[in-house]
Design a protein around this nucleic acid. Structure first.
Lengths: 220, 220
DNA sequence: TAGATTGTTAATCGATTAACAATC
DNA sequence: TAGATTGTTAATCGATTAACAATC
């Protein structure tokens, strides 16, 4: 199986690979060693070593018995798996606190470690339109579809309040985006062909509340 | 099985229940009907109806054949399942863009729809310390442990750069928090008893990049 | 060589979906 | 009553882990 092979890339393996990449970059920056083994990486991230091997196999990476893998080679393989070198351009809609935070991660000129570059932002608030945030100009919502078509934007990032999310998604789809990254807590209805990732932050809060509740009730 | 029963609450069912709650609150606010069925809710959120029934059963909610469930009763049951009425107090560490965004969601005086209230924020940047953001005072990092102990804080929210995350986690644990909500992209090492939720936003970016890559390579 | 590690096949485990009796 | 919907048990599906041959 090589990196071009599409088989077996489930959402879970993809997100683990993202964690491997983050950790390996961290090792490259701070560590002294050039190599690692699947069991080491698994120990660091609390993931079973067989799982790590299967995931790494998805990228086409090959190791050597007894020696393990090269950190540098593994980083390259995972970056290629994610096609990080080929930057995807994105529009971000909704420049509230969260939108501004996402802009901060994805707008810097030369650093796109995840391979996504936000090239314009949109809001319906007149006091924001025209301003520049993190070097990105904020434009009016009604420009989304036309601009997206003309600039061949591939990703739309939705950071609006829930009421607005579906309407914005429709505009982005009409603008020809291939993927939508939805931070609003609503389920969007989209054409089958559109890639959708929901990053509803409040689900994390719910999880914590429930586990704390279990502890409390369990102790009674 | 009733709401006090701890069996079967996996991380997946918990996060689905969070989505049900969001959607049912939305229906209450905007809709005209008082009831819903598991199949309707499943259709709205693209979740199998049997799954919805099993998840709702975890909260102890009971419906009536032919009629379905009451929206109001379901919201109450899920809120009780998450113990949302019993607000948990939290410290937030790292008041960058993301930290500020999270503060915006969880600091407002009277509205804590997820049951988490941030009561203080911390940063190591002198230009931020002493300021008030979203009504919350920013304090120096070295106050975390002592203050957390004295105030009996139950949740620590980490929005720092990756290098700092483990050190902050240690301080929070020493301060007696029962749960950590980690937005930094590193795996934390914590005592078994601490509840941990990782909300690494960049994993969403990785997922989109991979799916776009598959589409592109598949078309070739 | 011996031992550590890889990569893969088989077994297990858990989550989802199907089937169906109960009932309003 | 008949039909829709609930709630649960059984079957299926997919993801994780165990086992093991290959090899440096």
């Amino acid at each position: 199986m090589d990196g071009q092979d599409l088989k077996g890339s489930t959402v879970l393996s993809i997100k683990r690979l993202s964690r491997y990449l983050t950790h390996l970059r961290f090792l490259r920056k701070t560590g002294t060693k050039e190599g690692f083994s699947a069991s080491q990486l698994g120990r660091d991230l609390c993931i079973h070593e067989t799982q790590v091997r299967k995931d790494l196999a998805l990228t086409g990476l090959e190791g050597r018995p007894k020696t393990g893998h090269s950190i540098e080679e593994a980083i390259e393989a995972i970056e290629k798996y994610f096609n990080i070198g080929d930057t995807s351009e994105a529009f971000l809609v909704g420049v509230g606190h969260l939108g501004t935070a996402i802009l901060g991660y994805h707008s810097r000129k030369n650093s796109h470690p995840s391979g996504i570059k936000i090239v314009a932002a949109f809001d319906n608030d007149d006091s924001k339109i025209g301003k520049t945030i993190h070097g990105i100009k904020v434009l009016a919502i009604d420009k989304i579809t036309d601009l997206s078509n003309r600039m061949h934007i591939s990703i739309g990032i939705i950071c609006t309040p829930p009421e607005a999310a579906q309407g914005i998604a429709d505009m982005l789809v009409e603008g020809g985006v291939k993927a939508i990254w939805n931070f609003s807590p609503v389920g969007l209805t989209l054409p089958e062909s559109i890639v959708l990732e929901n990053s509803d932050i409040e689900q994390g809060a719910a999880f914590l509340k429930r586990r704390l509740t279990e502890q409390k009730r369990g102790k009674k």
